[in-house]
Simulated scan of single mutants.
Amino acid sequence: MNIPSSIDLPTPPIGQNVEAAIQALLRADAVCFDVDSTVIDEEGIDVLAEHLGKGQQVSELTLAAMEGGMKFQEALAARLNLLEPSQQAIMECLEAHPLKLTSGMADLVQVLADQGKHVYLVSGGFRIMIEPVADVLGINPRNIYANTILFDDAGKYAGFDTNEPTSADMGKPKALEIIKKLGNYETMIMIGDGATDAQAKPPANAFIGFGGVAVREKVKKVADWFVTDFSDLLQVLQYNEK
């Protein structure tokens, strides 16, 4: 494996094709991140469910979706129908429990931006909850691909937008196809913790699995490179600056 010795990676690094993933990261012009349990250190919908007093039921559905045992669109519809979150309830949830960035995330996004790499958030979560996270990271809201909860005129839950690519299974590869076409990108990376993130290669040139919040064995087995700390990616990118 031809990884420069000056890059201090875990020994041995974990993944199906670590060298290819590192080289892809070095030359990437677009880096796409999952949000829940990747950019943030929890599952946004579970936070909302706890706030609404329905944490256990929703957590079980979230786990089924992340482990790949339930089609994503089925889990999404089931969870939202259970919660029926109003716009006010979501705002109150975010005020009471601001979503927290995973350790190293802010530094990683800054380095990517400094190197001219475009950063996208591609999530099966909800745009209304992700936009404040993107704002903290300095990511343009146009670079968010996520699900849109619909509300009626009174702010009550009225379903979700099924036209969003991330609203159904295999939605992340569809979102990355759109990103690639609109940005005319040559090399794209997908980074995430779940089975739906692994699906994004292709069109992603490499899939980096993240286990810093939750280790999912199915994801670990298929990832080109599997990391548990964003410092590994930072070390690679900083080597690129030398």
Rank of each mutant, 00 (worst) to 15 (best):
G138C: 09
Q199C: 13
F230K: 02
Q199S: 15
Q115S: 14
A30P: 12
E43W: 07
M66Q: 00
V227A: 00
D169V: 07
I128F: 13
Q110D: 14
E186M: 09
P12I: 04
Y145W: 04
G192R: 01
M170P: 02
V39M: 12
K218C: 03
D41V: 10
E217I: 08
L26T: 03
D161T: 12
M1Q: 10
L137R: 08
C93Y: 10
A64C: 00
A78L: 06
V31N: 01
P98G: 01
M91W: 08
Q238T: 13
P10V: 04
G68H: 03
R27M: 00
I139C: 14
T38V: 08
T11L: 09
L137A: 12
V109G: 08
V31W: 05
P165N: 02
E42Y: 11
G53N: 02
R127D: 10
G15N: 00
S59E: 11
L83Q: 06
P13F: 01
A146N: 06
L82D: 07
L176Y: 02
V18N: 02
Q199G: 11
E164V: 11
L137G: 13
V39P: 04
T162K: 11
D36Y: 02
Q87N: 15
K100Y: 04
H97L: 03
E60P: 12
M70H: 01
D36W: 00
A146D: 14
I144A: 08
M1I: 11
D46Y: 04
E74G: 00
